Amino acid sequence: MNGYAGFKLLIVDDHAHNLFTLRTLIAAHLDALVLEATSGAQAIDLTHRHPDIDLIILDVQMPEMDGFQTATLLKLRKRTRDIPIIFLTAAFKSEEFQQRGFAVGAVDYLLKPIDDSLLINKISTYFRLIEKERGLNRVLEQRVAERTAELAQARDYLENIITHMGEALLVLEPGGAIKLTNPAACRMLGYAPADLIGMGIGDVFEEDGDEAAGAFWGTWLEALIRTGALSKIEARFIARDGRRVPILFARTAVTDTAGEISDIICIAKDMTGYVRVATDPDPATTQERGERELPQEAS
């Protein structure tokens, strides 16, 4: 076997004996499949019927549509513009015609009579380049597929955590609108996920002394810009039915590469059933009293 089985080569010449010579030469050195065309129009038709052609050897001097015109049309079509073209000619040998050949997209411009070794070496070189490019593309595609799978796995893992976490999660836009939530927040507030998206944080949240919806937002934003996070506070969610749900609430700002806030992450723990009990950690001292949370005993 001579190699390059599976490659497809199109040879174009209006003289049958030239096609025979090319076909015989290529078959003696390479295992590529050879297609033949006797005109530019037939060559273009073959490229439509065989979109996997790897290389074209194109005679320049042909009636009706010469090699330059054929190459120009091939380069205009998306499916054929990247196929390498080697020009062969016995008549157009001047540098002017060679430059014209390269200008219309040829990768090589060879003169007849054909130098057998040179032509086979040229064909083999382009096949090797194509083979290498395909190998690199396969590696790249494999890496992209692996990375895509890793990202999907990481996304599913994160979504699973968010879905099953016991605390309510609200992700806000910098203006305070809710852009993402989790099932715990929906249960706590009594809203469907689609209903919560787009609502303002002031519609579902209030702090002590800030019963007016949204009255606290300017203070929040200023503090988040300054510190990036606000410590846990006691507050209330305003449920859909008007109930006030006591929560322990924390907020964190996420910034973009420019240092601007892109998201605000809010996490709330339902404190229903808990009461605050004052304790004296050390009765023998005069230290300030601490506080701890205890579950409220059932009556």
Rank of each mutant, 00 (worst) to 15 (best):
F237W: 07
A212H: 13
E293N: 00
D270V: 09
R243V: 00
I247V: 15
A229I: 05
R236K: 13
T279D: 12
C266M: 01
A212E: 04
A215F: 05
T255N: 01
R226H: 12
R226Y: 02
D270A: 06
D203Y: 08
S262G: 07
Q287F: 05
D241P: 11
R292L: 13
A212N: 01
R226C: 03
W217L: 07
R251E: 10
R244T: 08
T257E: 12
A223R: 15
G218T: 09
L224E: 03
D208E: 14
E234W: 01
I267R: 14
R292H: 13
R276V: 14
D256N: 15
F249V: 02
R251W: 00
A223E: 11
D208T: 09
R236G: 01
D280Q: 07
F249E: 09
T252N: 06
F205K: 11
G202F: 02
I267F: 09
S231A: 09
W220L: 05
D203V: 01
L224Q: 08
T279E: 12
R240K: 15
E291F: 11
M199N: 12
I201W: 06
D203L: 01
A268D: 04
T219H: 11
D256R: 01
E293A: 13
A223S: 14
R276G: 06
A253D: 00
E234R: 14
T252L: 03
T257M: 06
W220N: 14
G228E: 04
T219I: 05
S262M: 07
S231E: 10
A215R: 14
V245D: 02
S231K: 13
A268G: 11
I264A: 03
D256K: 03
G209M: 05
E291L: 08
T219S: 10
T255F: 11
D282W: 00
R240I: 04
R292P: 00
W220Q: 12
P283T: 02
F249Y: 04
I265S: 04
D241A: 01
E222K: 07
G259N: 09
A253T: 05
D282Q: 08
L248A: 14
F237Q: 05
A229Q: 14
E293S: 07
G242H: 13
A268E: 12
S262E: 03
L248C: 11
D270T: 05
R226I: 02
P246I: 05
A212V: 06
R251C: 02
E222N: 13
L230N: 08
I261W: 12
P283W: 13
A229D: 10
E288M: 10
G209D: 05
E288D: 10
A223H: 06
E291Y: 10
V204Q: 08
I265Y: 14
I265K: 00
S231W: 08
D203S: 10
T286C: 08
P283Y: 15
V245G: 02
P281T: 11
T286V: 01
A215V: 03
V254T: 05
E291I: 07
D280L: 06
Q287G: 12
G198Q: 02
G209V: 10
T286P: 01
G198W: 13
E288Y: 02
E222H: 12
A250T: 07
F205E: 09
T227C: 03
K269R: 15
T257Y: 09
V245E: 03
I201M: 00
R243C: 06
R236P: 00
Q287K: 09
A253P: 00
